[in-house]
Write a protein that binds this DNA or RNA. Structure first.
Lengths: 206, 206, 206, 206
DNA sequence: CATGAATGAGATTTCATTCAT
DNA sequence: AATGAATGAAATCTCATTCAT
């Protein structure tokens, strides 16, 4: 009960609440989640939540913003691009999978955003801008550079970057809804990389 | 307020209610939807809903079952498989896209199932068994046959069928959440088919 | 489907409904009983009940009036009274028990009246007038006559007739609420008669 | 609308609600009572009831348990039994009447239990165990002892204790349903005691 | 800062009653 | 006479939000 420890607890409170909110919201969805349950998870009472957050809506939005992955760092790929487009591409894919699989928040938050598409539209947009945006941009640059240098086929530049990532998104969603039916991540990633390589490869005609 | 035939109105009632339920549930999600709103959409009172459905949960489940696409018919692909595995494969992909894009119910119902994953688990499973199951099975057969006949590379037989479809699922989800950001379907499908062909093609090295 | 049988069915309908109403009302009480259940028991629909009865309240009241024992016939006791007051008294008690035990309606209707005391006051009064009234009157006459002839003690005339019957009412209520705890009727009646005889007997001092 | 101490109000709330619940339930019966009315009687809103009680059923059951007389204390009779069985018997009867007449809760609660026999069976049993049980037990002992010492007739030991109390139960029920028709309690009790004395008295024939 | 009692609006559900057929 | 679809009022119960302490 020292001043310090109390102050520390106070500092940590909002974060604790956000994490509890994450658990409950991802378990039950926005509307079906009760503030009581969130509070109970933290070990405080409902009133306390209102000390830190204006209302349920704000709590949800703040949770999504605070707990979802910060802007994906794409600088490594661009650096690598100087050496090899193919290797930058593979590197990017490996990172995207690694990040998605290690981050228990982003997985469920994506599901929440799909669920609350009509209720929290602005959040979907924000998610896309922060996460998908930079990745798509890098991909675009990689495809462009690769086709310019001849490492890739010329048509590679006109492939929609989203297509390159679409198997990942498909995998992600399957794993979210029917985890027991989703294939093993490593082997799926292997096929994914193989597929991308063949798709961008210069056509080798005999 | 024309009365018309009572019997006729009665016949149509359950379907009318299910369609109104679909609109509201897909707009707001399960928990946030009010039976009042569904009733208002049909132009009846809340009580009428209970004449036809036991409760909100049953209404939701019945709606999902009744309005989602019935079992996907895979016989055409298998017939075509006798002639050409590649063409059966392309045919299958084109049909899956065509069906998904033309059916406004299935699109949103898939979203609802993603959203309500924890609340209505059995429905996800049912959806998978009815829709995904047969398609995956056919894909498996096509890959197998193609690799046996030499039309595809030998390794094609060991590709997870889900991988073949994963870009579709990714596209579907993007279109669901951020329709304005999703690429044009035809061109995406074109890339998808191209990608699949290259993935299963026998390696042609000079 | 002859005219006759249909007419017969029609004739019997109201009684059938009253009997079904009795079963449901005595099982659940007035407020908790649903007209739907009564109708289902008869094998008709709710609407049919309204063909014969104005509303739920009327149905209940009619059921109580129609199914409860008609006015108790007290003439035999008064005839017997000419010969012996003691024997008239015993006869009356035996009859009251026999009637109460054989009539499955009256038992439960009494319970309903106790339950609905505040909601259907007039019925309690009517029940008392029809059933208890004549019996009390006869008892009064028996006590009076017996004390006049010296068969009973002089004070017997001033015993409240209700007291004479009160063990019966107590037994009845116990049997209604906790049937497995209520003593065997015959032996209880035996004690009751013994008790009454002693109560009215002239005092025998040595 | 004085506020007073919040804590004090909180302390008293559950009891206040139970008392209001008693009034409404005994006025209208279980099913016909509205929580709205109970709340209005306390001067709070419906929601407040749910702060303290899980649901209507629990409220009813708690009310019965909390407001009905705690176990009847039978030690005085057993003490008195050393001196005189007859006096213990009279004392017991007087106490039972005094308690029943003075306790406005038990009277109505007994009526509710009769009314709700099928809906709240366990409560009837509880009532019997707590209230009737001990009294019957003492009566049994008194009858036994009295017949052993010769103060009562030998047969007194085999009288069902319930018979001894049955006039009381009869009186109680009559007073409950038709209070204006029930005899004056004192005189009824007088007859009751007289009756019991004669019933257990050794037969004195000249 | 934290509590938790109280609120009150609103949600689901029930059911007596009506009425066109 | 009988039906049963439809109603609508009302009942139970929930829960985000407030506020005195």
């Amino acid at each position: 009960m020292t001043k310090g420890s109390r102050a520390a607890a106070k500092q940590a409170r909002p974060r604790e609440i956000l994490e509890a909110a994450f658990e409950e919201f991802s378990l039950r969805g926005y509307a079906a989640t009760r503030l009581d349950d969130i509070a109970a998870r933290v070990g405080v009472t409902k009133g306390t939540i209102y000390v830190y957050f204006e209302n349920k809506e704000t709590l949800f939005e703040t949770m999504v913003v605070e707990l979802s992955t910060p802007e994906h760092d794409t600088t490594p790929y661009l650096a690598e691009l100087e050496t090899s487009a193919a290797s930058a591409l593979e590197h990017l894919l490996r990172n995207v999978y690694a990040e998605a699989l290690s981050d228990r928040y982003s997985r469920e938050i994506l599901r929440l955003l799909i669920a609350e598409k009509n209720t929290f539209q602005s959040l979907s947009r924000r998610f896309k801008d922060n996460f998908a945006g930079p990745v798509f941009g890098s991909l675009q640059q990689i495809l462009q550079k690769g086709s310019e240098t001849g490492e890739f086929a010329p048509q590679a530049a006109s492939i929609d970057p989203f297509f390159i990532l679409s198997p990942f998104l498909g995998y992600f969603v399957l794993d979210l809804v029917l985890p027991e039916d989703s294939p093993e991540a490593d082997s799926f990633l292997g096929t994914h990389i193989e597929m991308v390589k063949r798709l961008v490869a210069p056509i080798a005609k005999p």
